[in-house]
Each structure stands twice: as C-alpha cells, then as structure tokens.
Simulated assay, not measured.
Amino acid sequence: MGPADLLQLLDQTQPRRVRAIENLLRGRRTVSTLYWGQRYQLLALLSLAKQLDRGALDAAAQQVVQQGLASWDANHERLVLTPRGLAAQQSATYFHPQTADWWPTIDLMTARQRILLAVQVASQFSHHAGHYLPLTTDMATRQFVRNWFHQVKANDLGTQVLAALTTSLAKLDPLVAAVVTGQFTGYQQAGQTLGQLSQTTQRTPWEIQLMQFEGLAQIMQDAKAPTNPFNSLLQPLWQTPVSRSAQITLNTVKQGQTLAQIAGERRVKVSTVREHLLEAAIMLPLAAFPYDRLLAPATRDQFKAVVQGPVDDWQYTELPEALQKQYEFFYFRLYAIWVGKQGEQHGK
C-alpha cells in the first residue's frame, strides 16, 4: 500500500493512528483495533491484507508527511490531513467501493479462490478440454469446487456461468468489471496478475484489489438466487462478522446469564467475556446487541452527564473518581460504542 492509498484512509479533522489501520488490514482482531476501525469507519478493511508486515505503512506515512499532505500529532502516532492533503484526496479519481458494507459478512479470500477456479473449470469444460493446469489453490478450495462441479455439471454449464457473470458485472462500474474479468483464467486464456492489471489501468495495486473485492461481493450477492449456478459454491461463505467465541458469549448473555456465570461455565476470565461482548457490539448493528441489558438507560445518562467533546478524545481516567469506582472500563467503552452506533444509524 502506497501513499496514494493511505491518503484515502485519512481524515481532515480526525487524527488516525497508522498502526491501528495497519492492524485492521492485517486482521488483528483486538478490541482496540476493532474499536478504532469503527471510529474511523474502516471496518470493511478488516483482514483484507493479512500479508502485510508490521510497519508496512510506515514508509507511506512518511511520504505523505514529506509531501505536505498530512501531519503528525504531538506524539507522532496519529496522522491528520492538511488542507493540501484534503484537496489532493478530493481531487483524486480514486476508486471507492459501493459494496464495502457487505465485506465483513463475506469470506472474501475464499470466495476469490472458489470463483476463479470455478470459472476456469466451467470454461475448460464447455470447450471439452480434459487436460489443463488448474489454478493453484489450497486443497479445501480444490475439493469444494470439484464437488460443486459434479453437482451442477450440465452441457450448458458454461452458458449458465457466463450469463450469471454478465448479470453481475453489468451492475458494476465498467472499469471494475474489466478488472474482475481480467483476472479470469479459462480456455486458451490466462488471467492477468495484480501487477499487470495495475499497469494497464494506471491504478495502484491496492485499488485493483478493492475493485476485485467489489466484483466478488456483487457476484456473491447475486449468487443468493437459487437458480444462480454459483449458489451452492458461494452461499456457505456468508458469515457473521463476529468471531465464533464472541457469538457464543453474546447468545448466552441474551439468554439472561450474568458475565460471571458465563465466565464460570466457559472457563474463561470475566475480562475475556467482556472482550467478546465489546467485539460483538462493534461488529454488529445497533439493534442486534442487547445494550439495554448491559448498559441501562440510567447508566448512559450518568456517562452523558460527565463526558464532553468528540468521542475520540474521551478518557476513562478523566471520569470522576466516584464514577470510575462504580463502573469499570468495559461499560465506558460500551457507552462510547453505543454513541458511535447512534451516529451511524442517523448517517453521521
């Protein structure tokens, strides 16, 4: 990810931690990473660049500062756009995905492997090519696509796949559609690499990846139709954005058990139970989390009476001592998440 890509992830009024953005891309699912992903409205990027090394964004951060597009805060931890950086961000013809809200609910990496291999298999089959070198994928993907192929195998499979892809791609920006089809491998056709697509489109490699995710998400959405040939191949890849362990904890809370009871039954610390619940609160819509049970209206009123200013500036240690004794950090953070979700609900 280069400076042009990082520039699109910064804000002119909200200083943003480069390390938090990096950890989000790398899939570090700590409560802190998820919380700041929510605050920055970047949760859609979670785990989309697991190959990044620690410090991978440092060079890009240094370049945007050197170019006068952003500046560091006093602790040299957070970046904020300068007026020049804001102008550059707004004038750039950078790609902004329209399906990003779906991304946390899709296993995009597995979907990519399955779609690419399935398209190759259908193409070769439609041309009666029995001997070809399949794309390199993991064993699980090969087995799943093999089973899918034998399930949907028909003389017109190639026609069905072409029709489904044409329908999905027609809903995308033409450039995005071209990038998606450009990566397909089929009969007497080799798919283009990320670098090749970047060079031919004059877009950054990260933009190309975003376009690919956009196309995958649209294909996934359309594959929900039972008549779509990709239905059985892709439907299992829709997922809850919450980890399995956190989902179990959340379900138990909804059943009425206390945090201490849950910790005892699951043989984990109460702090772990709280981390699960904060993750669920961050990742799920406002109505899907039991705020009234864990954060009663009276409790919210107590916090509201003492916290002021932007949510990002709130500090637990600045609360009145009596309130700190009454409520642990968990409730303070949950309140901040709830306030943030209220803003999202009203489009703020």
Rank of each mutant, 00 (worst) to 15 (best):
G2Y: 14
G2P: 11
L7W: 10
D11N: 13
T13I: 05
P15T: 00
R16G: 00
I21C: 07
N23E: 14
R29M: 06
T30Q: 03
S32I: 10
Q38E: 12
L42S: 07
L43C: 00
L45M: 09
S47V: 02
D53M: 02
R54E: 15
A60W: 06
S71F: 11
D73W: 14
L79C: 00
V80F: 09
V80P: 04
A87H: 14
Y94P: 13
W103Y: 01
W103A: 08
A111K: 02
R112D: 13
Q113M: 11
V121I: 11
V121P: 01
F125M: 10
F125K: 09
S126C: 07
A129C: 13
G130S: 13
T137K: 15
F144E: 08
F149A: 00
H150C: 01
L162C: 03
L165R: 06
K171W: 01
P174Q: 15
V176S: 09
V176Y: 02
A177C: 03
G182Y: 03
Q183T: 11
Q189E: 04
L194V: 04
L194S: 14
T201M: 07
P205A: 00
Q209R: 14
Q209P: 02
F213I: 06
G215P: 00
L216Q: 10
I219S: 05
Q221R: 15
A223Y: 07
N231C: 07
L237N: 14
W238G: 01
P241I: 06
S243F: 02
S245P: 10
T252W: 12
Q255D: 06
G256M: 00
G256Y: 04
G256D: 07
T258A: 10
Q261N: 13
R267C: 08
V268W: 03
V270I: 12
S271C: 01
R274L: 01
E275T: 00
A281T: 03
A288Y: 04
P290N: 10
P290T: 04
Y291F: 15
A296Y: 02
A296N: 14
D301H: 14
K304D: 12
Q308G: 05
P310Q: 10
V311F: 06
T317Y: 06
Q324I: 02
K325I: 08
K325Q: 15
Q326T: 13
F329D: 00
R333I: 00
W338E: 11
K341C: 07
K341W: 03
G343R: 14
E344S: 12
